[in-house]
Design a protein around this nucleic acid. Structure first.
Length: 367
RNA sequence: AGGGGUGUAGCUCAGCGGUAGAGCAUCGGUUUCCAAAACCGACGGCCGGGGGUUCGAUCCCCUCCGCCCCUGCCA
């Protein structure tokens, strides 16, 4: 709460300062004049995996606990419907993702936690950004080209405009930092382009040029069946992934059946260069134990997988099963989850509303 | 909008009047330090929807819907 009050004050300061910047088109853009604030959005598309946990959730918790930035975490349901969604699944997935956040250690009082559609400022700023972004920029997005492909005629307009809404998600909070994986780097670039163009076109220094927070190398969790492919909720084999909702038995079984090779674990990391499946298990162990992959090898060099796997399975069960249990406990009280989301949205709006209001004023909307 | 093509297992496709098959994928077993590979086995389909012809339709006819390609039209 303290954070929130502080940030509101800062927002107003930023807003006011903006007028004095207006005549000075040359002003150097810097994030230093903005409240340090992390925003991250995750699509509630269902099926939280170990990859999501180690690659995103766990880091979100670390950022929250570091206390150096305000942290805003958002379930982007408006993005989810750029592709067809079953309404019941969408609602369920949103609540389950919320449960996942909390079970993983996100404190809804420390962080701002909500679903996107409950903060209408996202969509409102999104429209303005639709008018800032250029068709050409969007057409160049590799994710658009990948997802729409040759069926672009079939894709929704929303899928095309997606990156502009994402820019709004970030900038409606004047977020200074966004954790990004490889796949989102280009979208963040576009967010920066939109902020810069807006600032330039209106002669203001209103939106920050958001910085990426690059994710660590070891956080890429690969498929348990094919160490060269990313662990994915859409893989046809459920044995290829560990779901956050898996039981202890399921987790143990999946690790036991994970693909490996016949060699023992090496002493040095470069011994894993040509062994993606082995490297993946070592990386997973390291991430779960919160040690480096080299430290894993220090402890287990020479081990065959017949002995390493049970140790890894025990560790995974110890770390993950409680999260899954807590998720299902939370899911039993839907009203409580909805209450948390509503409260998060309220706090989100307290930050976003003044920024949107100032944006509208800059653009020339009569208030 | 007109012409052509197409719609069968999760995917790629075969069948074409007697209520369906292959490969791959998935799952299980044997094997193996655990896995992989190999072998064995299992699961799996209102054959796009509706109507009609027929003793009987995935197969023929009508109609609707979806998708692909070509041509055209509108802005």
């Amino acid at each position: 709460m303290v954070h929130l009050v502080g940030s509101l004050t800062d927002c107003c300061v930023i807003g006011n300062r903006c007028d004095s910047f207006a005549p000075d088109g040359m002003s150097v853009m810097s994030t230093s004049q903005f409240t340090p604030r992390v925003f991250s959005g995750i699509q509630p598309s269902g099926g939280l995996t170990l990859g999501n946990y180690l690659g995103a959730m766990k880091r979100f918790v670390d950022m929250q606990d570091a206390g150096t930035h305000e942290t805003i975490y958002c379930m982007v349901d408006l993005h989810a419907i750029t592709v067809a969604q079953d309404p019941k699944d969408l609602a369920h997935n949103t609540r389950e993702l919320c449960a996942g956040f909390i079970a993983s250690g996100i404190d809804p009082e420390k962080s701002v936690l909500f679903n996107q559609s409950q903060v209408p400022e996202h969509a409102q700023l999104g429209w303005i950004f639709n008018c800032v972004a250029r068709m050409g920029w969007m057409g160049r997005m590799t994710q658009w080209k990948d997802k729409a492909g040759k069926n672009a005629e079939q894709a929704s307009l929303g899928l095309f405009a997606y990156p502009a809404l994402m820019a709004a998600d970030i900038l409606v909070y004047h977020a200074t930092h966004v954790p990004v994986g490889e796949d989102q780097k280009q979208h963040l670039e576009l967010t920066r382009d939109i902020a810069a163009k807006f600032n330039h076109d209106y002669g203001v220094d209103f939106f920050p040029i958001t910085e990426p927070v690059i994710e660590g190398a070891a956080t890429r969790v690969m498929s348990l069946r094919d160490g060269t492919k990313k662990m994915s909720k859409s893989d046809p084999s459920d044995l290829s992934r560990i779901n956050m909702t898996d039981t202890a038995d399921a987790i143990a079984k999946k690790i036991r059946k994970a693909k490996t090779d016949p060699e023992p674990l090496p002493e040095a990391l470069d011994g894993l260069d040509e062994r993606p499946d082995a490297r993946n298990l070592v990386n997973i162990y390291a991430a779960l134990a919160e040690i480096t992959p080299q430290q894993v090898l220090d402890q287990h060099a020479g081990s065959q997988f017949g002995t390493f796997k049970p140790v890894l399975a025990d560790l995974a069960v110890e770390k993950l099963a409680p999260i899954g249990t807590e998720m299902s406990r939370l899911m039993e009280d839907q009203a409580e989850i909805d209450r948390i989301l509503a409260r998060g949205a309220e706090r989100g709006r307290e930050i976003a509303a003044p920024i949107l209001a100032k944006t509208l004023e800059i653009v020339g909307m009569v208030r």
